[in-house]
Nucleic acid binder design. Structure first.
Lengths: 258, 258
DNA sequence: TCGCCCACACCTGTATACAAGTGCGCAGTC
DNA sequence: GACTGCGCACTTGTATACAGGTGTGGGCGA
C-alpha cells in the first residue's frame, strides 16, 4: 500500500481540462485535489488505518509543496478521517468495528430527518419518481448490485427533496466513515434482504405525507442495514485491517447497502 | 464592529502560561487560537453575517501571518461558519432565521440519540445525578438563568453518559450555529416554560432504561425549545443583523435554552 | 551486558516571497 | 453624458525559508 499516485497524473497540473465552472475549477486545484485524493485512499483502505501521515512525505509523493498538503490534512482532521497525534501531526483514523454501529446510528437519524423533511416538500411527480424507483428495485431484487445502485438513487432523491443543507453537510461527513466500514467488509456481501420492502415503506410514507412514519421507516431501514453490516464486519475475517481493492467512493449518493 | 482585539492580548504570544497538557498547549497556539477567536466573534455577532473576511486584513489585525489565519478560516469553513465566495475567499455565513428551525431539528435528533445511548450506559449513580439536577432545576424554576445553567449541565451529563464521539463531534458543529441564533435573539428572553417537566421526562426515561422514550422525550424537548427560539427570532426586532453584547460561548455545554 | 546521556535527524508550526487571476476604477471616446 | 477599454491594486493559492521541539539511535560508562 501507500503507493499513492502522483497528484499530477491524478488531476492534471491545474484541474481538469473541462471545468464547467471556473470558480469550481479553481477550488479543484491543489489543496482540494489533495484532499479528495487522500480521502478516497483513506476510505478504500489504500492508506492503512493508524498509518502516520507526514507532510513532507505526502508533499513529495504528490509533487506539491507542504502548503496544500497541510490544508488537506486539516480538512480530513475536521472530518475525523485522520486523528491528531499528541505530539502534532496526524495518522489515519483507526477503524474500530464496534464503532461502526455508532456511525450507522447517527446516519440513520440524519437520513430519517431527511425523509421527514422530504415529506413536507414532495410534489406528486416526486412521489411518482420514488415509487418508480421502488418498482425498479423490486424488478431487479435478485441482483444485489442493481438493488444497491437503485437504493443509492433513492436516498439521493430523498436528500434532494429534503433540501436540508445542515443534514446533508453532516451526512456527508458520516458517509465517509460509513464507506470506510463498507470497504472493510467484503464488498457486496452485506445482504439486501427486505431492502425493497423497507424502501417501499419510506416511499409510501412520503406519498401519504406522513412525516413521522417516513422518519421512522428510514431509521428502521438503516438500522437493519447496520445490523447486516455489523455482521459482515465481525464474521468474515479477522478484525485487522483488510483493505479491499474496490473502487473508492468519494462523495454523496455512493453509500449504499441502504 | 470588526474591532477584533489583537490576538496577542487575547491569548498571549505562545499560549497560556499554565498549559496543563503540553500537547494541548501546543495546539492552542497560533492557528487554533485564531480559530477560537474568530469562531467566538462570528457566534456573538461581532463579525457581521455576510462580512467578507480577507486573510491579509485578519492577519494584520491579529498580529500573525497569513498561514494560521488561513488554517483557521478553513476550519471555520468546514464548520460552515464562513462560506466560500465564488471567486475564492470567504465571508461570514449569512443568518437566515428560517434556517434556525433546521438547525434545531438536527440538534434534536443528535441529542435524542445521545439520550438513547445514555440510557444503555447509565448506572444508578448517574441516574441519581440526573434526578438531582431536575430537582435543582425545579427549585429554581422561576430564575430563568439558573434554569438554563442547570439545563446545560443536564445536557452535558447526557452527552458524557452517551459517550458517542460521532454524535458529539457533529453536535459541536451544530451548537456553534445554534449559539449564533441564540445570540441573535434577545438573550434569555426565550422563555423556559415547561423546561423542568421536559427534562424530568428525559431523566425518568433514562432511569427506566427506556431508550425509545428517552430519545423521544429529548427530541420533543428540543423541538419545543426550537419553537420558542423561532418565536423570539421572528417577533422582537427586525430580522436584520442584531449582534448582542453577550458573552461569547465557545464550546460544549454552553448551548442552552434547552 | 545493561542503562543512561547526548546529539542528530525529522517534523511541525510560522513567516515570508512569488505568481496568477479578478474586480474595480479611471480615463478616453463616441 | 454614457459607454467602453485599459490598468492597477488586491486577493488568493503555492512554494520556500526558518525556528522550535521531539523522538530515536548510537556511544559511553557502570
Amino acid at each position: 500500500m501507500t503507493t499513492t499516485p502522483d497528484l499530477r497524473t491524478a488531476v492534471g497540473p491545474r484541474g481538469r481540462p473541462q471545468g464547467p465552472d471556473p470558480a469550481l475549477a479553481r477550488r479543484q486545484s491543489g489543496a482540494r485535489a489533495v484532499y479528495e485524493l487522500l480521502r478516497g485512499h483513506i476510505i478504500d483502505g489504500t492508506l492503512v488505518p493508524g498509518e502516520r501521515l507526514t507532510e513532507p512525505v505526502l508533499a513529495g509523493r504528490l509533487g506539491v509543496s507542504r502548503t496544500p498538503v497541510r490544508e488537506a490534512l486539516r480538512l480530513l482532521q475536521a472530518e475525523a478521517l485522520v486523528v491528531e497525534l499528541p505530539t502534532g501531526g496526524v495518522r489515519v483514523a483507526p477503524l474500530d468495528v464496534a464503532d461502526a454501529r455508532r456511525v450507522y446510528e447517527v446516519r440513520a437519524r440524519l437520513e430519517g430527518l431527511l425523509a421527514r423533511d422530504a415529506c413536507e416538500r414532495a410534489w406528486p411527480d416526486d412521489v411518482a419518481r420514488l415509487a418508480r424507483l421502488v418498482t425498479l428495485m423490486d424488478a431487479v431484487r435478485d441482483h444485489e448490485d442493481e438493488v444497491l445502485r437503485i437504493g443509492a438513487q433513492f436516498h439521493g432523491e430523498i436528500e434532494a427533496l429534503a433540501d436540508n443543507r445542515w443534514c446533508s453537510a453532516l451526512l456527508r461527513q458520516i458517509r465517509g466513515h460509513v464507506d470506510r466500514y463498507r470497504a472493510l467488509a467484503a464488498r457486496g456481501r452485506v445482504g439486501t434482504t427486505d431492502h425493497v420492502d423497507e424502501h417501499r415503506a419510506v416511499a409510501d410514507a412520503v406519498a401519504r405525507g406522513d412525516a413521522v412514519a417516513a422518519e421512522a421507516a428510514m431509521i428502521t431501514h438503516i438500522d437493519r442495514s447496520a445490523a447486516l453490516a455489523d455482521q459482515a464486519l465481525r464474521a468474515p475475517t479477522d478484525p485487522a485491517v483488510t483493505p479491499t481493492t474496490g473502487a473508492a467512493p468519494t462523495d454523496a449518493a455512493t453509500t449504499d447497502e441502504s
